[in-house]
Design a protein around this nucleic acid. Structure first.
Length: 217
DNA sequence: CACCAGGCAAGTA
DNA sequence: TACTTGCATGGT
């Protein structure tokens, strides 16, 4: 028996999906690329991340082994278009050290780790916070985890589905409590939140044109 | 020109 | 504990 909130969330999803169509996240060719993208896109436009990824690919270092060998300063120059390149170079290096020491440098082994254990271990890496960890869990390791971001917060608060004071864990609990635990659905739902957030629910919202306008509950 | 972008850690009081 | 600040490029 679906709860009232579950029905609302289902309506929201249907409206967004009808407007934007399937997003097919994450836009990457390999799980390792997903992980790098998750770190590089922190507070950064995805287009800039793509430039950085392209640089890594052209330099032939878009794999854990090659990337671990190049100096941090060199890495920073390659990812320069993604912004915050010095901090992000360190964060990528932190992750690579973690991958080497905990999973013998194997992304496949990392992805085979149990969900809760992996989440805690990822959060132990300096530079990987809740959103980055959950993006890795969902989009690289295919674990059923709902990713929360600023757009999620804006949509949920502006539609009075959660309180303004809600934190990351609170929003994640809310979503996961009311949705069927399914990787493909968590994947697409989060992507739809980002799309509606980008186009209609910014700091200067276009609520009158938003596909979520007129959802009745 | 101002504002924004798929966060996080470190510093301050 | 609860705020604030630094990090930085590139598109609109």
């Amino acid at each position: 028996m679906p709860s009232h909130v579950s029905k609302i969330l289902s309506q929201l999803y249907d409206k967004m999906f009808a407007h934007f169509g399937p997003q097919g996240w994450w836009p990457a060719e390999t799980p390792f690329e997903v992980i790098l993208g998750a770190i590089l896109t922190q507070n950064t436009n995805w287009g800039n991340v793509e430039k950085a990824i392209t640089n890594l690919k052209k330099s032939g270092v878009l794999n854990p082994q090659a990337l671990a060998k190049i100096p941090e300063a060199k890495l920073a120059l390659l990812i320069r278009p993604a912004g915050y390149f010095n901090v992000k170079a360190k964060r990528v290096k932190n992750f690579l050290h973690f991958l080497a020491s905990e999973y013998e440098g194997s992304v496949e082994k990392l992805c085979a780790e149990e969900k809760g254990v992996l989440r805690e271990k990822l959060l132990g890496v300096k530079g990987i916070g809740p959103e980055t960890a959950d993006s890795i869990l969902l989009y690289a390791a295919k674990k059923p985890v709902f990713v929360i971001d600023q757009y999620t917060y804006r949509v949920l608060t502006r539609h009075f589905l959660i309180e303004e004071e809600a934190d990351y864990e609170g929003m994640q609990d809310f979503m996961m409590r009311h949705l069927k635990e399914e990787v493909s659905h968590f994947n697409e739902y989060h992507a739809q939140f980002v799309m509606v957030g980008k186009h209609f629910c910014r700091k200067s919202p276009r609520c009158d044109e938003c596909p979520l306008k007129g959802v009745n509950w």
